[in-house]
């Protein structure tokens, strides 16, 4: 038997970047580093838990290691939600590097400790862009009165700050909703838009927006972590560093190749002109304010968390 047996669980389809670009490369890298000292029980694709259930799975011992989707655990790790806010990064690599630095601050690390999990590596998507099915939405004024699909949480705040209305629609309904015009736009990263199949319905996408992002922190249960020999712990972390670079580069180059692919499909890829981008980012600033205000109202050090995150973003 192996020295360390890890049960790895995630909730995304096998082809999804979380799985194919993050979890599996990490598993392979660790195997490469320590060989047979580690073995896996691997339950991908929501076989044992979906995105919402991953935190419970790792806390109850169903899993030893899961990629915790930060947007779905605002009840357990509200301050880490800072990593999903708009306007704080320009690529997957910068987003990941920022979060990797910020996660070491007591505000963010404290939440991992409280929940009994150890963060190993993170994957932050490139910033969300605006995918629309009825032409480009090139200026702030044109957001007014639009209905944009939202995944809930702080994405609602971002959409509202732009003067549009967020409509929460289940992932399995997005395709039909866009096809029938229930909503005409959605916020998504290039690397994950294919997961909904809506790229074939959209005729325009922004490329230089920063409408927030989706972050996952691959974490191991503390109790399990404590049983792992130090040299394997080191290898786990080393594989984590490798994965952060690997998945960041992968998503950034994906964004480029997908951009080409979508262009060829006839999609209009456009940049917000500088003055409009300023206006849009200015409007999105208010999301930071209300995020801080709401968490501070509950006695949480949200302002410090945001401050330190911003600093990390500047250095990334």
């Amino acid at each position: 038997a192996s020295a360390v047996e890890l049960t790895v669980v995630h909730g995304s389809p096998n082809k999804h970047v979380i799985s194919a670009g993050g979890v599996e490369p990490w598993m392979n890298k660790l195997k490469e580093l320590v060989g047979d000292a580690v073995s896996y029980n691997y339950f991908p694709a929501g076989q044992l838990a979906n995105l919402k259930g991953l935190m419970n799975a790792v806390q109850t011992g169903v899993a030893d290691a899961v990629p915790v989707p930060i947007g779905y655990v605002s009840d357990k790790m509200p301050l880490n939600g800072v990593s999903t806010l708009p306007g704080l990064g320009s690529s997957a690599r910068t987003n990941i590097d920022t979060y990797a630095a910020a996660i070491q601050t007591p505000e963010l690390m404290g939440e991992f400790d409280e929940n009994g999990i150890v963060p190993i590596w993170n994957m932050a998507y490139p910033p969300y862009q605006l995918f629309s099915s009825k032409g480009a939405i090139p200026s702030l004024a044109e957001f007014e009165g639009r209905v944009i699909r939202s995944a809930g949480g702080s994405m609602n705040l971002a959409i509202e700050s732009l003067g549009a209305a967020p409509a929460e629609i289940s992932a399995s309904d997005i395709y039909v909703a866009m096809e029938r015009g229930t909503v005409n736009a959605t916020l998504s990263a290039f690397s994950s838009v294919k997961g909904y199949g809506v790229q074939e319905l959209c005729d325009a996408a922004s490329t230089n927006g920063s409408f927030g992002t989706f972050t996952n922190v691959f974490s191991i249960r503390q109790e399990k972590w404590d049983t792992i020999p130090a040299e394997i712990q080191d290898a786990i972390m080393e594989a984590g560093k490798f994965t952060e670079q690997h998945v960041g580069d992968l998503m950034d180059s994906d964004t480029e190749t997908l951009g080409k692919e979508f262009s060829e499909l006839g999609m209009d890829l456009y940049e917000f002109p500088p003055e409009e981008l300023d206006k849009i980012n200015g409007a999105l600033e208010s999301v930071h304010d209300s995020w801080v205000e709401r968490l501070a109202g509950r006695g949480l050090p949200a302002e410090a968390a945001l401050e330190k995150y911003r600093k990390a973003a500047k250095q990334a």
Binding site: P13, N14, K15, A171, S172, Y175, K194, G197, E200, L201
Partner: peptide
């Protein structure tokens, strides 16, 4: 159509749901 089963298949395989 619409079919939840086909949506799930499409998402799992990244085939066109349409």
């Amino acid at each position: 159509p619409p079919s939840i089963a086909l949506v799930v298949y499409g998402i799992l395989t990244e085939e066109s749901i349409g």
